[in-house]
């Protein structure tokens, strides 16, 4: 098998002694759409932030195109980041800039292209996500779905090889969410991008994924093709797929805490 585009090896992350990721290893191959599933608080976003090099891990490595992003030089990291596009959960558009200024920012900052070329490229990127006529509008004038699409246009501005999405369909209605799924598939087909999507939306995951990985309490409990994942018998995967809630009030920790609050900790013995 070819070298993976992204190779996460034994990634461990702790915040104030609290372990959030527990020795996670995951390879993402060129041209594949990898969906990272997991419940709230499972460590998905933490893993994403480490893959894009926003935070250093407690231990373990993250290699992007073979380069360890936590031990490379600033110049290498910049080169790596130029090949990655990231669409954040809350879009993270610059509110002081218009939509087209948001999209042309990386082109103006990181290339030496002439202004007319940048204008054409910006329009093409916006048109590709269906926002060709919204370029002059400010981010606060856009709907949630339009903001997400504008964020995708900005993420693709430099034609990255790797595209990363954090909860792309969170908070969107099913029609807009389905539209975003199709857009992700279009980007993969048209530009042969390697795509990592962090989500907990099952319908979206099974529509766009080549492979699916699932995090549970900071550990990777499954990495499989979407069909194999769907047929998994792993109890936590099944619980997630079958939407079975945790018995919250029966959990041992909750019972213990209630006992403590009621001053019954000593009475037990």
């Amino acid at each position: 098998m070819a070298d993976p585009m992204i190779a996460v090896d034994n990634l461990t992350v702790e915040y104030d002694g609290n372990r959030v990721l527990n020795g996670v290893s995951l390879d993402i191959q060129r041209d594949e759409v990898m969906v990272l599933l997991g419940g709230s608080g499972s460590g998905k976003t933490t893993m994403l932030r480490h893959i894009i090099g926003l935070e250093p891990p407690t231990s373990g490595t993250v290699r992007v195109r073979g380069v360890d992003i936590n031990r490379c030089s600033a110049k290498e990291l910049k080169a790596i980041r130029c090949t990655m596009g990231v669409a954040f959960q809350e879009s993270a558009l610059f509110n002081s800039l218009s939509v087209e200024e948001n999209v042309d920012l990386p082109l103006r900052e990181l290339t030496t292209l002439a202004d007319p070329i940048i204008e054409i490229m910006t329009y093409m990127k916006l048109a590709a996500v269906g926002l060709g006529e919204a370029g002059k509008r400010m981010p606060q004038e856009l709907s949630g779905g339009m903001k997400k699409r504008a964020a995708i246009a900005r993420a693709t501005a430099l034609d990255p090889e790797i595209l990363i999405f954090d909860e792309p369909s969170a908070g969107l209605d099913p029609i807009v969410a389905a539209g975003l799924d199709e857009l992700i598939l279009f980007l993969k087909r048209a530009f042969h991008m390697t795509i990592l999507v962090v989500t907990h939306e099952l319908a979206s995951a099974f529509r766009i994924a080549d492979r699916v990985a699932m995090l549970y309490e900071g550990s990777l409990i499954a990495v499989d093709s979407k069909d194999a994942f769907r047929a998994s018998t792993q109890p936590r995967v099944r619980q997630f797929l079958d939407r079975v809630p945790d018995p919250i009030t029966e959990s041992k920790a909750v019972q213990e805490h209630i006992r403590e609050l009621a001053g019954l900790t000593g009475a037990k013995n």
């Binding site: 894009i52 080169a79 809350e90 558009l93 509110n95 920012l105 990386p106 900005r154």
Partner: peptide, 21 residues
């Protein structure tokens, strides 16, 4: 506000130095 809304993180991921910009 830019930090809270991930705009600074977005700049970093775009290889743009927030200090410079």
């Amino acid at each position: 506000t830019m930090v809270v809304t991930n705009e600074i993180d977005a700049l970093r991921t775009m290889a743009i130095d927030p200090i410079e910009l």
